[in-house]
Design a protein around this nucleic acid. Structure first.
Length: 478
RNA sequence: CCGGGUUUAGCGAAGUUUGGUAUCGCGCUUGGUUUGGGACCAAGAGACCGUGGGUUCAAGUCCCGCAACCCGGACCA
């Protein structure tokens, strides 16, 4: 509510959502612009969020048996061209290296937009026998796509991500692994980032270039636009054939292995901002917040206050809570606003009156709720409150998602619902791309996914009237 | 990539119509007083006016190119 607003530098999201997003990115000190369009500087506080995402997600990958590798940044043009659909999809947004020192190169090199081709080139060398499979590799790196428009976190020309690339002996195993990794992403979003997701499959029009099937998790932002938060692709043996990757199976036959790839990017941070943020700034899910608790000594000039606050910080650090103290001489109001903008989940206030009473006051960023906590219970109460913030964020986001899925039975109805409410519009679909194109042209929505949780809403496609085969979600996407 | 707008100190702006010594607020530095929701006083520092050309005795201001950012549209994680 406007009258509760304490931070004037941030535009209200109801006034101008895009400006609100940009303000939060800058005021929370996540990012800065560089002199090249679409290439952004991750500032320490923004990069620390990514480091936490990496650390937690990487541990999940390793539980699946995935190993990390690092591939070259440059792809020779001839290598990139080996798989036809793939190069057609990426060629328009590739950047090329044409000079080495002062010499023009014999062959130009593409700066990787994604690394399927590099992994395939390598897999051809290291896969000989069914005993070499599966190969479960991942790399954390940046990739480059020459986007025409760019926005912080949502669309960079260079962005940080991880790309997993795996090879399997059978189609069934590869398909199962594709879905397993999608579930790793979905669980991560929900349990770590407090972002509820819808799991589903992309239509052929929306799937990855060169893939047989693309699976996705779709999230809903505050402005009710969709954000694709992660994707997992099943390739069949298409790339393996194009790159001549073979192995000898148990029956002593040379056959092609089956492939997957899957990725998430720093776009997740954009998702966090637009899922949890409010008009006072960023709101971070506790599990990835660089600072989980900010300790603010009140009336710090009075004897003993700073010392007591430092003790509190040290106890929390010892308990494994990411904690900082602000002993600057900025006013109380300044500090409150500052850490609200930065989305710190808990603010712990400790002043002379608290010390007298053997307590501190802890304020939740998500709800503003204040709790007096006895210093004897400090560690356990902080753990509880961090979990409560996580749960509160998830519930609020889940409600936003659930309340903005609308069911439509005709193209007109879908168009009207999107125009009035935004969000996801749920319909049946015949499976024809022509109907997808009509939805795009007439209602401005692309298909987001065919949810795994299929429903029967009608017998026919609301666009063409032919037999419906799937239920599908439509939306305006980032 | 197409249409519209913007670019002057770290940030936000005035100055451009009519060319003539670079202005204001916030922030920053130093000292002091303050501190339970963006405190106050005093003194100070900080700008080859986005960039490259051109016109002129003289350009932030006029002309041409380029870049970045913002808002639409097309395209895309």
């Amino acid at each position: 509510m406007a009258k509760d607003k304490k931070v004037e530098q941030i535009t209200d999201m109801e006034v101008d959502f895009a400006q609100w997003f940009t303000d939060v990115c800058k005021k929370a000190e996540l990012i800065d612009y560089s002199s090249i369009k679409g290439m952004f500087i991750y500032r320490p506080y923004g990069y620390a969020i990514w480091e936490n995402i990496q650390r937690i997600m990487d541990a999940e990958f390793k539980k699946c048996g995935v190993e990390n590798v690092y591939m070259p940044m440059l792809i020779p043009e001839t290598l990139l061209q080996k798989e036809k659909d793939h190069v057609e999809g990426f060629a328009p947004e590739c950047a090329w290296v044409t000079m080495g020192g002062n010499e023009k190169l014999e062959e130009r090199y593409c700066i990787r937009p994604t690394s399927e081709t590099l992994f395939c080139e390598h897999y051809k060398n290291v896969i000989q026998s069914h005993r070499d499979l599966p190969k479960l590799y991942n790399q954390w790196c940046s990739v480059l796509r020459w986007e025409k428009t760019s926005r912080p976190f949502l669309r960079h020309r260079e962005f940080l991500w991880q790309e997993g690339h795996t090879m399997h002996a059978t189609a069934e195993e590869a398909e199962a692994f594709t879905q397993r990794m999608l579930n790793v992403y979905a669980d991560f979003c929900e349990q770590v980032l407090a972002m509820p997701v819808i799991r589903g499959r992309k239509t052929d029009k929306e799937k990855f270039n060169g893939a047989e099937a693309t699976y996705t998790i779709e999230c809903m932002m505050h402005d009710r636009k969709a954000l694709q938060a992660g994707t997992s692709h099943y390739f069949g043996d298409g790339f393996a054939k194009a790159f001549d990757i073979t192995f000898t199976n148990r029956d002593n036959q040379r056959v092609n292995p089956f492939q997957t790839s899957w990725g998430v990017s720093t776009r997740l941070i954009g998702g966090i901002i637009m899922t949890h943020g409010d008009n006072n700034g960023l709101v971070l899910p506790p599990k990835v917040a660089p600072i989980q608790v900010i300790v603010v000594p009140v009336a710090a000039h009075k004897p003993g206050v700073t010392e007591a606050a430092t003790d509190v910080m040290n106890r929390l650090l010892a308990a494994g809570v990411r904690t900082k103290i602000d002993v600057s001489d900025n006013s109380m109001g300044w500090k409150c606003a500052e850490y609200e903008m930065k989305g710190v989940p808990l603010r712990l206030e400790l002043g002379p009156r608290d010390i007298e009473a053997g307590q501190c006051v802890i304020v939740r960023r998500d709800s503003g709720e204040k709790t007096a906590v006895r210093l004897d219970d400090l560690e356990t109460k902080v753990e509880e409150l961090l979990q409560a913030v996580h749960d509160g964020l998830f519930e609020k986001a889940k409600q936003n998602l659930d309340e903005h899925i609308y069911e439509a039975h005709s193209l007109e109805e879908a168009k009207a619902l999107q125009a009035e409410h935004g969000g996801f519009i749920k319909t049946m679909w015949c499976g024809d791309e022509a109907c997808e194109n009509r939805m795009k042209d007439e209602a401005g929505m692309s298909s987001r996914c065919m949810p795994f949780a299929q429903e029967h809403l009608d017998d026919v496609c609301p666009i063409c009237g032919r037999k419906a085969v799937k239920s599908i979600l439509w939306g305006v996407a980032y």
